[in-house]
Design a protein around this nucleic acid. Structure first.
Lengths: 152, 152
DNA sequence: TATTGTTATACTCTATAACTATA
DNA sequence: TATAGTTATAGAGTATAACAATA
């Protein structure tokens, strides 16, 4: 212990809400940890894994990837460069607009993306502790929390 | 296309679980977005805000900060350097062990940390959509999910 | 003129390894 | 010898600004 600095619990938020926020913080930390770990198993960074996952179904214009990842388009250039060097992604022209380049997963890229999804333990480990009805409840609560109108 | 049968070791996950995982992904994204935004309002990076929040109550040894943030100790040096330059953090000797340096928030650092907590809308905005009983339910579900034994 | 992707630049975060000063 | 913190280094992500090709 050190200085006796009393910290004021800022805005008036009830203890229950604070507890839920803290729990969500724990979930967020756990989620990220597992995601980075799964990516690392394939020698990918988190950003690379996210981009690969994003384009693994259909080719996506560079600009659109940036919007989805909420970052500047110039960053995507580098990330796709590294994925392309590894043979997981390739750039294709867009027949409709010659300014656009589509980032598309190669066969190996799709395989890696699939394995990546599979190795995400988050579905099994923590969620496995809940029964089906509990998972349904959790789903509806999260949906309501995120703005979707769900009857509970 | 891999013709071998070992294509996907991914476990058969039911649609409900997948939906919950996806929802959690959305929560994680929203949480991060808000956190970075709150940090940016104080011209801090996410890592800086996390460190500042961590030491805002009591001084913490550099090594311990690294453990909490799950990163290498050498990284903390730089982050604390930048916080120190801004006058938000100071390094203090540990009377008990002269090898140890304690990172401690200054008065301004504590004020910033408090404002940071206050500007985290995550408590108000999404959680505000839930009633108190729903929040209680969510809390218990998250607790169970995270391993704490709770009777539901 | 506006948009797409890229390049160049600078900063931060990250891990690794080597160093110092203590223990 | 072992530990705490630092330095040096390199790679990656990020934002900004300027650029070429295309619309």
């Amino acid at each position: 212990m050190a200085t006796t600095s009393r910290t004021t619990p800022s805005p008036i938020v009830d203890p229950l809400t604070l507890e839920v926020v803290e729990l969500i913080g724990t979930v967020v930390a756990r989620y990220h940890e597992e995601y980075e770990q799964a990516a690392a198993q394939h020698a990918l960074t988190g950003a690379q894994a996210r981009v690969l996952g994003l384009i693994s179904m259909d080719p996506v214009p560079m600009r659109k990837i940036a919007r989805k990842l909420k970052c500047e388009p110039s960053n995507i250039t580098g990330i796709v460069d590294r994925l392309e060097t590894r043979g997981l992604v390739e750039r294709r022209p867009d027949p409709a607009d010659r300014r656009v380049k589509l980032a598309a997963a190669t066969d190996e890229g799709r395989r890696t993306a699939r394995e990546l999804r599979g190795s995400l333990d988050f579905a099994r480990e923590p969620l496995g502790r809940l029964s089906e009805s509990e998972r349904t409840l959790l789903r509806d609560l999260l949906k309501r929390m995120l703005g979707e109108d769900v009857e509970l």
